[in-house]
């Protein structure tokens, strides 16, 4: 896809995100907006997906295709929107987000059979382990495809993350590319104040990871370049960690530079102000 097309998709995804959280008066727009460019770049450009007649075909085992796991499940709006816009299910279903009887639960789950989801997430710190398991499964099956997993930076405070961080290099899980959404914010405030992660890159390097620092996590061109670097670095006996610098709330001015929109929904006026900044490109659901 051309850069401009990817940017159009990202703009629509951001519209979907704010409309979804407005529609149910809850959810997590901040991190979703910040990770939009990464997910669009992965699903619309870099990931090798099982596709039939131009539409992705979902199969739980995902043989022969790249798989994505969302460990910080609270940013489900961005994932649901990207999955829908990529064709895993109808965009109209986004309107059911967080409502009774919906497949689009507050946090992602396999329980309702939503195509594209392979594990439940939301209770933090578990996704890296799951991704390692899926990567090992690929290796056992002689499947050369890759596993991608996204975590939050606040999530790095969970102990299980570091169990997984130690495991992956020791076992040379080199078909794994992990991302930390490095936005510096968490529910109770700036991550540096709540519990400082210090130098995450140095930590992962010390554990034996190949670490790529990627500034410009909200510049789709930069994200594509970073993904190329990460893919090139994989397959060399080390897992790859990309520290993705993003801005929470990116694309909606009043949601940027603060943790206040981590888990809050805009009211009607705020929604209008947000949508005015995000061109409708693919058609609202």
């Amino acid at each position: 896809m051309e850069i401009n097309q990817l940017k159009d998709v990202a703009s629509q995804v951001r519209r979907d995100i704010v409309r979804m959280v407005h529609g149910c008066k809850s959810g997590h727009p901040g991190g979703s907006l910040g990770c939009t460019d990464l997910l669009v770049a992965l699903y619309f450009e870099k990931m090798k997906l099982a596709v039939k007649d131009g539409k992705p075909v979902f199969n739980m085992d995902g043989a022969g295709e790249d798989l994505f796991f969302l460990s910080n499940g609270h940013i489900s709006p961005v994932w649901y929107s990207v999955l829908a816009r990529r064709g895993y299910f109808e965009a109209s279903e986004l309107a059911t987000f967080r409502k009774l009887d919906s497949r689009l639960q507050g946090h992602p789950t396999t329980h309702e059979g939503l195509p594209g989801i392979r594990i439940a997430s939301g209770s933090l710190g578990q996704g890296l382990s799951v991704a390692i398991g899926a990567a090992l499964s690929k290796k056992l099956n002689s499947d050369p495809s890759k596993i991608y997993v996204l975590m939050g930076d606040g999530e790095q405070q969970e102990g299980q993350v570091w169990e997984a961080a130690a495991f992956a290099p020791h076992h040379q899980v080199d078909n794994l590319i992990a991302f930390i959404d490095f936005n510096g914010q968490q529910i109770d405030g700036p991550t540096r104040k709540v519990l400082d992660n210090r130098d995450l890159g140095a930590k992962y390097r010390a554990f034996g990871w190949e670490v790529i620092d990627l500034p410009g996590g909200n510049d789709i061109q930069a994200v594509l370049g970073g993904l190329d670097k990460a893919i090139a670095a994989s397959g060399q006996e080390k897992p790859v960690m990309v520290i993705l610098h993003t801005e929470m709330g990116y694309g909606v001015d009043y949601m940027m530079g603060t943790h206040k929109w981590h888990g809050a929904a805009p009211n009607d006026e705020q929604l209008a102000a947000a949508l005015a900044q995000l061109p409708e490109t693919l058609g609202d659901y």
């Binding site: 739980m60 085992d61 995902g62 043989a63 798989l67 392979r118 594990i119 710190g125 578990q126 996704g127 890296l128 382990s129 799951v130 991704a131 390692i132 398991g133 899926a134 990567a135 090992l136 499964s137 690929k138 056992l140 099956n141 499947d143 102990g159 299980q160 169990e163 997984a164 130690a166 495991f167 020791h170 076992h171």
Partner: peptide, 28 residues
């Protein structure tokens, strides 16, 4: 030996890895 995974003293990670292994048809 190729179908044994030593996780070290890290049970939470072991459960997560086991869950991930099922994706692809393994029976952990």
């Amino acid at each position: 030996p190729e179908r044994f995974i030593q996780t070290g003293i890290a049970e939470a990670n072991m459960i997560g890895i086991a869950a991930g292994l099922t994706i692809g048809g393994k029976i952990p």
